[in-house]
């Protein structure tokens, strides 16, 4: 078994005349959190969709756990789980029913037990029997990620997991992702927030204009820049810090 969970070589993709990916090379190791950082329209979702067998590249190859996404899409689908940019949760069903649906489709042996365990793990036990369209943004995202964990996939794709969440919801999701990686799951997450990549990822690749322009650990990326100069700057409190300080009690409750 190789140590490589995800590999792409020379991935190219164009939509009509617009070339989105112009040769993307990636290598994600097993058990790491890998962040694909890029601005809007950089092609992050296209990379994720190719890796999760939803799209075919025009040229180049992509493989997940050693299976080629084009030649063995079914084997790839058994290894992965996709949490797309918009929480793909069935709002008409309860949280419990959503998890049961995933469990049945992945034919896990004890669906009820798994659904209850995940609800508990994601702090959704009390909301488990409420319809998912009554959930807050943060709860929906947590359910969405919980649904991805049914059947313990080896690789999880999180496409902008915190987009559209308030700061509290974002912290909830960050904690969840960190816990996941401790369990040995390989995670490829896309984000346009530098801070998110910095907080979560073992390694980071920067996707810009259809190409990876830099990749490595945060420290390696930092070395690409001129050495830090010592300067004294008065530290301003950010609005986010103020917000989090005020609602701090509430966040602590949620975490519990």
């Amino acid at each position: 078994m190789t140590n490589i969970a995800i590999e792409t070589k020379g991935l190219k993709k164009a939509f009509k005349a617009t070339s989105v990916l112009k040769g993307v090379d990636l290598e994600v190791r097993r058990g790491e959190i890998f962040a694909l950082l890029g601005s809007n329209g950089a092609g992050k979702t296209t990379v994720v969709n190719i890796l999760s067998t939803l799209l075919k590249p025009d040229s180049g190859t992509a493989s997940v756990c050693g299976f080629d996404t084009q030649r063995q899409p079914e084997r790839v689908r058994e290894q992965i789980s996709l949490t797309g940019q918009f929480a793909a949760v069935d709002g008409m069903l309860t949280g419990h029913e959503n998890l049961m649906l995933m469990a049945e489709l992945r034919s896990v042996s004890n669906p009820t037990q798994i659904a209850n365990r995940l609800l508990n793990q994601f702090g959704l036990s009390d909301a488990g029997n409420k319809r998912a369209d009554t959930y807050s943004g943060g709860m929906t995202r947590r359910l969405d990620i919980a649904m991805s964990l049914v059947g313990t996939p080896a690789v999880i794709f999180l496409d902008e997991p915190t987009t559209g969440l308030d700061p509290e919801g974002r912290l909830e999701v960050w904690k969840t992702i960190q816990k996941l990686a401790q369990g040995g799951t390989t995670i490829l997450l896309t984000t346009q927030q530098l801070e998110e990549a910095e907080q979560l990822a073992n390694r980071i690749a920067i996707l810009h204009d259809g190409r990876i322009i830099a990749s490595g650990t945060l420290n390696e990326l930092k070395q690409l820049f001129p050495p830090a100069k010592l300067e004294y700057i008065e530290k301003q409190v950010t609005l986010e810090e103020i917000f989090l300080a005020i609602v701090g009690n509430k966040t602590a409750e949620v975490a519990r």
Binding site: E78, G84, R106
Partner: peptide, 12 residues
Amino acid sequence: KGIIARLHSMPV
């Protein structure tokens, strides 16, 4: 809602 995309990325 992306539910079809989710199902297509699963062994379904």
